[in-house]
Amino acid sequence: MDNDATATEHAPAPTRYGCRISDSRGQVVIHPTRDTYIATLKVLVDDTFVSCTDLTAVDYSAYASRVGRPTERFEVVLNLISLERRERLRVRVAVPESDPTLDSAFDLYPGTEAMEREVYDMFGIEFVGHPDLSRILMPEDWVGHPLRKDYAIGRIPVQFKGSPS
């Protein structure tokens, strides 16, 4: 890691691959911006992070705590793995609510094809440059994006036998 004993309170925020990094329970997380996202991934691919094991998103709009709440509504989260160095790295990219788009990582990690479709399906984040951005789990004509926090959980009214009215 770039920051060790020399880092002090006033030192600039630690960076790696040109991005801000943070530590989450001992796991390394880097935070590129939307503009540097693909460029950062390219650097990471060259730095032996050849496999993207997971891509998902989080909708922070109902996040209760004010401390760790990100500024933007959505965040796309990638989990990369370096088979050579046996290392994991997490990438978190903020995606604003007003313009929920992000460049597709498909050209660098073809395995994200289905995962980006899932995020599109569940969160409505569009991936620019994705070859076939369509719903993957929900039916084609479904309205809404289920994993968004403002998407209510469905309820079926139950009438118990013999209950008053």
Binding site: T53, D54, T56, V58, D59, A64, V77, N79, G111
Partner: peptide, 21 residues
């Protein structure tokens, strides 16, 4: 992948399913 906001329920839980990939 779990995101917790300090409540007794996970704020977001995602399973990276091997079969899906």
């Amino acid at each position: 992948y779990i995101v917790s906001d300090g409540s007794p329920k996970p704020y977001r839980i995602h399973m990276r399913a091997p079969s899906f990939v």
